[in-house]
């Protein structure tokens, strides 16, 4: 099966293909091939290093969208035990673009809320590519309130290009649903840990995407607007997204620099999909630590501190 090749990996993929071709030839007939093969192998190794050493923001966006990148449901499956998925917003329907579940991480009982993309086209159509409708956000809000009522910490996984921009989504109050979640999260009387695992597109990401901690995977992004939408506004051309991406300060490193993220989880060279097990282990450890730190904090203090975090965000003159 051919591996999914990201745009910036193409030179590497071409070399790898060439190598595979050479290896199919009979070395016994043409012994000079051996030199060529080892030369090519060295070249591939070198390119591998330079290519992934310092990914540009746009390259990170591609990694964050890689179809084999671990998704919310993978984290739930690999990190948590005794999972009970909760469905529906009690008002309209069950939006599969958001997953809510009671789940246990290393003995700690939690409420997990995450955007849920599919792993293939069929799943993605069912889950609307991880872009929620209002009922998805309302399902998430229900889960938040439930967690608050029963003292469960909330762990969220952020992975969406954004709230779904459709007619019915607007009709049912997309903006209202997001706003309600923001107000709810801001004052929720239980710990909230948000983890950026892939894409963090605008208000649809924020609606489950902030709290007492923000942890970012190295190649995850979190942005006020997707680079494509930004490019289509400022350049009137969505294909110029690679130029827009670096302007938006949306990488994990940018978020650390701006004081918005608390911790970055490094990914294996090439991205989380190259070695998911190591990423699961890191996320489990970091989230577990954060849960431990927040577990004993009195709720008044916890919420006050969260308010202080929000208050402090912004750069202006006066």
């Amino acid at each position: 099966m051919a591996r999914f090749v990201m745009e910036f990996e193409r030179p590497l993929a071409e070399l790898e293909e060439k190598l595979a071709e050479l290896k199919r030839l009979d070395i016994a007939v043409t012994p000079e091939l051996a030199d060529e093969i080892s030369g090519l192998e060295a070249e591939i190794e070198k390119l591998h290093e330079t290519l992934y050493a310092a990914l540009s923001p746009w390259e990170k966006v591609q990694v964050s969208r890689h179809p084999e990148r671990p998704k919310t449901q993978d984290y739930v499956e690999m990190l948590f035990d005794d999972v009970i998925e909760l469905h529906g917003d009690r008002a309209f329907g069950d939006d599969e673009a958001i997953m809510t579940a009671l789940a246990t991480l290393d003995g700690r009982r939690c409420m997990v809320i995450g955007h849920r993309k599919g792993k293939n086209t069929k799943e993605n159509i069912k889950r609307n590519f991880g872009s929620p409708h209002p009922e998805g956000f309302r399902k998430a809000r229900r889960a938040m309130k439930l967690a608050e009522k029963f003292g469960l910490p909330v762990v969220t996984f952020i992975d969406t290009q954004g709230a779904f921009p459709g007619l019915e989504a607007e009709q049912r109050g997309q903006a209202w649903a997001i706003a309600e979640n923001l107000a709810t999260l801001a004052s929720l009387r239980t710990p909230v840990i948000a983890v950026g695992i892939g894409e963090g597109g605008s208000g649809g990401a924020l609606a489950i995407g902030f709290g007492d901690r923000l942890i970012m995977l190295e190649n995850a992004y979190y942005s006020v607007i997707t680079p494509e939408a930004c490019a289509s506004i400022i350049f009137k051309d969505a294909t110029r997204a690679p130029e827009a991406a670096p302007c938006l300060a949306m990488t994990a490193d940018d978020l650390m620099r701006l004081g918005l993220a608390d911790e970055i989880i490094r990914e294996p060279r090439g991205g989380a999909h190259r070695d998911p097990a190591s990423v699961f282990a890191s996320v489990a450890r970091v989230v577990g630590e954060a849960l431990g730190q927040l577990a004993g904090v009195p709720l008044d203090e916890l919420v006050e501190e969260r308010h202080r975090r929000l208050e402090a965000i912004g750069v202006y003159d006066e």
Partner: peptide, 14 residues
């Protein structure tokens, strides 16, 4: 203002 702007949504909602 990138993410600083997005976070104002949460800040004002709070």
């Amino acid at each position: 203002e990138g993410m600083l702007s997005l976070m104002q949504m949460a800040k004002t909602a709070a």
